[in-house]
């Protein structure tokens, strides 16, 4: 858990996550941030409390079949589902991301997109896209704007742009109104999780969008 997070998730996103209405890629962003940020975890869990009340106070309930309890006891007697293998402590990838990468930071299957920048698209439903980005220390991502919403969360290193400085756990939420040029801190390579709901064709767009240069 990181105590120094300055840039948090919005109420809209946390409520939609609690309600279960987000595209998978955004769920992944929220779950990853909550793993690092107890401030937002408490906010998300308070939105879940609202869900508990909605469940409790429904106008109507639905009668279960007459053998439902016996059937459930039979299900229970089959034993608990095999628990997922415990996650390794990884200084970069919180547990939800390890699930999507299938390992830790060394297992990410990076694809170069030019000038040292690399990306790895994670397997989610296609309403939105999640990808990991690797930006070499000191490199910049040239001015670009966004279609739809793009959220970027820092996992390692840090970057700065016209808005602020973003370090591990910080989330930048950019929409079509923001034009910015993120620059990775010189001290360390920057790894981010980036999620967008725009139907981007990364393979075509990436070489044009990401032409980093070294700032020394």
């Amino acid at each position: 858990m990181s105590k120094s997070i300055k840039h948090h998730l919005t109420d809209d996103l946390l409520m939609a996550y609690a309600a279960g209405n987000l595209p998978e890629a955004f769920d992944l962003m929220v779950a990853t941030h909550l793993s690092l940020c107890d401030h937002c975890r408490a906010r998300a869990e308070s939105f879940e409390a609202v869900g508990g009340q909605v469940l409790e106070d429904q106008a109507q309930t639905a009668q279960m079949g007459s053998d439902a309890l016996a059937a459930t006891m039979a299900l229970i007697s089959q034993g608990a589902p095999t628990p997922k293998p415990a996650h390794k402590k990884c200084a970069v990838l919180p547990a939800p991301l390890q699930d999507y990468v299938g390992g830790d930071v060394n297992d990410i299957r990076w694809r170069p997109v030019g000038m040292g920048v690399k990306q790895a698209i994670l397997p989610t439903t296609n309403e939105a896209t999640a990808r990991l980005l690797f930006i070499p220390a000191g490199a910049a991502v040239p001015d670009h704007s966004h279609r739809g919403i793009e959220m970027t969360m820092v996992l390692q290193g840090a970057f700065s742009d016209e808005v602020d400085h973003f370090a591990r756990g910080d989330v930048e939420i950019a929409d079509q109104d923001l034009e910015h040029m993120p620059v990775a801190d010189i001290s360390e390579d920057c790894i981010c999780l980036a999620v967008t709901d725009a139907p981007l064709k990364f393979t075509k767009l990436m070489p044009r969008l990401f032409q980093p240069f070294l700032r020394i």
Binding site: A18, T32, E45, E48, G52, V54
Partner: peptide, 27 residues
């Protein structure tokens, strides 16, 4: 509360079965 907890399990079931989507959860 227990109602909240049951809600989260039911919600995840809905995402899994009805929306046919994985549900990433925090650590």
């Amino acid at each position: 509360t227990v109602a909240t907890w049951v809600f989260t399990i039911a919600r995840n079931k809905r995402i899994d079965v009805i929306r046919k989507q994985r549900r990433p959860e925090p650590e």
